[in-house]
Design a protein around this nucleic acid. Structure first.
Lengths: 194, 194
DNA sequence: AGGGTAAGAGGACGGTCGTACTCTTAATTC
DNA sequence: GAATTAAGAGTACGACCGTCCTCTTACCCT
């Protein structure tokens, strides 16, 4: 049956947010359209009224995830004590909470290698989304020129993503916490001090 | 038909090395047993004479990959000029060649998030393999105590893996090269100097 | 008020997946 | 040299996959 435009917008929205979580939790290949739609409360038959392909959904979900996590981190930075913004970002990114909830966390740490394997056309659209994410953090980075700041962002986030990703492999919570703590110390010293 | 023990060992070996490459290139979920066996030159029917499950193959393939890449990197370190071992390791890890050939490269950068999603029993066996990999690099790390060296290794490799993984998303070869260069500079300064 | 339109259900499609089974046949063992 | 054993082929299984198509039905527009 037909539904109102607002109803459709809500469905679209719901699919997107469920997919953004499901992809990060289970991986894009392991998380099927049917599963996503079921969690939304719909059947998979209606999927193609909202997205023209799974890759399309994937890209939009990545964008959504980047937007949410980027916003959250930027807000944490803004509400931190004077001069402590970058430190707050690093501490939040490398927190136990972030390590324990990949479904609402950073796309890089959850889907990095998968992004690299996507066809060129998909990858290019994702690059744009990643670039937008990075721009958000310009105000919080030290450096004389904008390019210097950009360079630091391009280094900091992937590095932290790698640490977070590998911390998630560690099964013992205490060792996981310890690794994250050591990493926080290192990145704060390397990027947020001096 | 029945084959000689040496023949079987060769088949086992072949399956393992093909799988280690295929998993890193396409991801574990996307790379099926049928595809692997076909590339070996066998049919999938014989697979379970060699491995008791796909997870079993996955773990052994990860071990194989870690062993190969670890050995290669340790050799590069040993054959480097006096006092330049760690620099050589970093330069090799963050090389364009490594970024362009995930199938023969680091497991973390190729399969990291996937490892984190595996069931606990699998993850634990992989942790052992990762620990063995790290031990290899103890001789090349600066630091007063062994624990200090271990901490640096636990930080350096995941960080570099994150950078490598995200460099692979970048479609433009020049930008990719630039990112790797900046990262080499950073990690050498942070870990191999002073 | 009635006709066009579209969201979503339902199902079919061809494909791939991991696993388990039987069968063939040659190497190994006695 | 006959009996045993086991590698690999072949096949079947149930499940899931992304995509596409048709059908129903309620909303929207005139």
């Amino acid at each position: 049956m037909r539904y109102s435009p607002e109803h459709k917008a809500q469905s679209h929205e719901k699919i997107l947010s469920v997919a953004a979580r499901s992809f990060r939790e289970r991986g894009g290949d392991t998380s099927g359209i049917g599963t996503v739609m079921k969690k939304v409360g719909l059947k998979k038959g209606g999927f193609y009224r909202h997205f023209k392909s799974k890759d399309d959904l994937f890209i939009e979900a990545v964008g959504r995830a980047l937007d949410e996590t980027g916003r959250g981190m930027a807000e944490a930075a803004k509400s931190s004590p004077e001069g402590q913004a970058l430190r707050a970002i690093i501490e939040r990114y490398l927190s136990v909470a972030h390590a324990n909830s990949p479904g609402s966390g950073c796309v890089r740490a959850a889907l990095g290698p998968e992004l690299a394997r996507k066809p060129l056309a998909v990858r290019r659209r994702i690059e744009v989304l990643l670039a937008a994410y990075r721009e958000r953090f310009l105000p919080f980075m030290p450096g004389k020129t904008i390019e210097e700041k950009r360079t630091k962002i391009r280094l900091l986030f992937p590095s932290m993503a790698g640490v977070l990703m590998m911390a998630r492999v560690v099964s013992d919570p205490q060792r996981r916490e310890q690794i994250l703590m050591e990493a926080r110390k290192f990145f704060i010293k390397s990027f947020a001090e001096k």
